[in-house]
Design a protein around this nucleic acid. Structure first.
Length: 422
RNA sequence: GCCGGGGUGGCAGAGUGGUAAUGCGCACGCCUUGAGAGCGUGUGCCCUUCGGGGCAUGUGGGUUCGAAUCCCACCCCCGGCGCCA
C-alpha cells in the first residue's frame, strides 16, 4: 500500500511509477473514487454532528421536564438519511480500498527497465560450472536410480507435484535446514517456527491479492490459508503494533514448509523437485527503520551468497527488472544457481526490499508513544530452499557411477558423505 | 466440545442508558548550571477550507432521540472439565 496522501498530492509520481512498471492500473479511477469517498464522508459527518447536537438538546429538555417529541422526530429523520448515505459510503470505501491495495509499490531508481525475466540484469557471478567428462543426468534420473524419491505414489496420494522423498534424501533435507539455521543464528538472526496457517486479514497484509487465487491453499470451514512461505507469518507477526525504535532492527530467520498451488505455472521448469506444491525453506526477514533498509538489502544478499558459496554451488545474481519484480517489492535481487542438466542458471532465492508497503497494509509502525511515528520497512530473502538446493547439489556434484558427493560443510549434520546405491 | 470468568488508549483501571473519569508511561514546553522533582500542554484513527468536525470500549447486527452500558450472533483470552500427538 502506498501513502494515500502521496496519491492525492503527487499523482504524477505514482503515475510515472506505473508507466515504468508498464502497469495498466486505473489510477484515475482510484483518485476519483477517493475524492467521492471523502466528499461523502464530509456529508455524513455533518449529519452526524447535527444528530449529536439534537440528542444533547433532548437530554437537556428531559432534565427540565420539557416535551422533546418534535426533536426526536427530527433526529429519526436524520438517521434515515445517515443510514442511506452510510451504505453508499461503505460500498465506495470497499471499492476504494480494494483498488488501493492493488496499486503496486514505488520502485527504487536502480531497478532496470524491462519486459520480463529475460531483461533482468546480471550483476554478479560466482563459481565455475564444472566440465563433466560424461553425459550429465538430471536430478530425477539420479534420485530414482538411487531409490530416494517416489513420484508416482506422491501423485496417487496427493496429485501431481507431490512426491515422497526418502531415506538419505530426507537426512539431506534436514541437514540443509540445520546448516542454514546455524549460519543465520551465527549472524544474530532469531530463529522462528511460525504458524503454518494464517487468517485472511493477516494474509491480505503481506501479499498481492491475486495470490489468493493462484498461490494459496484455503482451508475449508475455517478462515485460514496455508502459508506460501514463512516470510508471511513473520511479516504479520507485528501486525497492528508500534515498535520501539530501540528494538529495531528485528532480524528473524524462519523455518517452515511452503505450500503453493502454482496455478498457471505449468510447463516451465516444472519437472522433478524444481516446482512443487510443498517444500521446506529457511527464510530471512528484517523489520527496520526506513533509513536503514537499503543497507539491509545488501546484508541479506550477502548472507544468502555465503550459503551457496560454502556449498560450492555456482550462482549469479540478477537485479530483477520492472516487468518481473511483482507488486510488493521496491527492489529485488534473485540468486540463480547453476543447473547442469538444464545448462543454465535458474532461480533459487529471491531478496526484496518491500519498503513500507507491507508495513502500511499490516499497520506496523515504529515510534515512541506521543512521539513521532512512521511505518517500518520490511525485507525478506530466501536463506535456503531445500528442494532447489538439493537439486543443485545433486546435479553439480554427480559422479559417472550415479553417486553424488555431499559438500563438506554438511558432513557434520549427516552420517554419510555421498548419496550412493546401497 | 462443555461450564464459568473476561475483552475499554502504550499499560493499569472506572463508568449498568445522557455522549469515555483517573493514574502510570511517553512527547513537547516552562523552571534548573545539569539531572530530578514540580508545573503546563499534548498523547488512537479518519476528514478538514486548520476554525473545527466525525469515529473509536473484541467483531458484526438489533433496540433507542441517544448504547461501553440492553438484546442477538460470532471471534479471542484466562480457569476448570472432556478429548488428544
Amino acid at each position: 500500500m502506498i501513502d494515500i496522501k502521496l496519491i492525492r498530492e503527487k499523482p504524477e509520481v505514482v503515475r510515472k511509477n506505473l508507466e515504468k512498471r508498464k502497469s495498466d492500473f486505473p489510477l484515475d479511477d482510484l483518485i476519483s473514487l477517493d475524492k467521492k469517498w471523502r466528499e461523502l464522508k464530509k456529508e455524513i459527518d455533518r449529519l452526524r454532528k447535527e444528530r449529536n447536537e439534537k440528542s444533547t438538546q433532548i437530554a437537556e429538555m428531559r432534565k427540565k421536564g420539557k416535551d422533546s417529541k418534535e426533536l426526536q422526530k427530527a433526529v429519526k429523520k436524520i438517521n434515515v438519511e445517515i443510514k442511506r448515505k452510510e451504505k453508499e459510503y461503505e460500498e465506495l470505501g470497499k471499492k476504494r480500498k480494494h483498488l488501493w491495495m492493488q496499486l503496486p509499490n514505488l520502485l527504487h531508481d536502480s531497478v532496470p527497465y524491462g519486459e520480463d525475466e529475460k531483461d533482468n540484469v546480471e550483476i554478479k557471478r560466482w563459481g565455475e560450472p564444472k566440465d563433466f567428462d560424461f553425459p550429465v543426468k538430471n536430478h530425477i534420473e539420479i534420485l530414482e536410480a538411487l531409490g530416494l524419491i517416489d513420484i508416482e505414489r506422491g501423485a496417487k496420494v496427493a496429485g501431481a507435484r507431490f512426491y515422497y522423498i526418502k531415506d538419505d534424501l530426507v537426512k539431506l533435507d534436514y541437514a540443509l535446514i540445520n546448516f542454514a539455521l546455524d549460519h543465520m543464528r551465527k549472524k544474530g538472526y532469531v530463529a522462528v517456527e511460525p504458524p503454518y496457517m494464517m487468517n485472511r486479514r493477516a494474509y491480505e497484509g503481506v501479499t498481492d491479492l491475486a495470490d489468493f487465487e493462484t498461490v494459496m491453499y484455503k482451508i475449508e470451514n475455517d478462515d485460514l490459508y496455508l502459508i506460501a512461505t514463512s516470510e508471511h507469518p513473520m511479516a504479520a507477526m507485528f501486525m497492528d503494533e508500534i515498535i520501539d525504535p530501540a528494538e529495531l532492527p528485528i532480524k528473524l530467520t524462519g523455518i517452515s514448509p511452503c505450500f503453493r498451488r502454482e496455478v498457471g505455472s505449468h510447463g516451465k521448469y516444472s519437472k522433478g523437485l524444481f516446482r512443487m506444491h510443498q517444500f521446506n525453506k529457511v527464510e530471512q526477514f528484517i523489520f527496520c527503520l526506513p533509513e536503514d533498509s537499503w543497507d539491509f538489502l545488501e546484508e541479506l544478499q550477502r548472507n544468502a551468497e555465503e550459503l551457496y558459496e560454502s556449498l560450492g554451488i555456482p550462482y549469479r545474481v540478477v537485479n530483477v527488472c520492472t516487468g518481473d519484480i511483482g507488486t510488493v517489492a521496491a527492489k529485488k535481487y534473485d540468486i540463480e544457481g547453476w543447473f547442469p542438466s538444464a545448462g543454465e542458471y535458474k532461480e533459487i532465492g529471491s531478496n526484496s526490499n518491500c519498503t513500507d508497503y507491507q508495513a502500511r497494509r499490516l499497520n506496523i509502525r515504529f515510534g515512541k508513544e506521543g512521539g513521532e511515528k512512521g511505518y517500518v520497512h520490511t525485507l525478506n530473502n530466501t536463506a535456503l530452499a531445500t528442494s532447489r538446493t538439493m537439486i543443485a547439489i545433486i546435479e553439480n556434484n554427480q559422479n559417472e557411477d550415479g553417486s553424488v558427493d555431499i559438500p563438506k560443510v554438511l558432513w557434520k549434520y549427516l552420517d554419510f558423505k555421498r548419496l550412493e546405491k546401497k
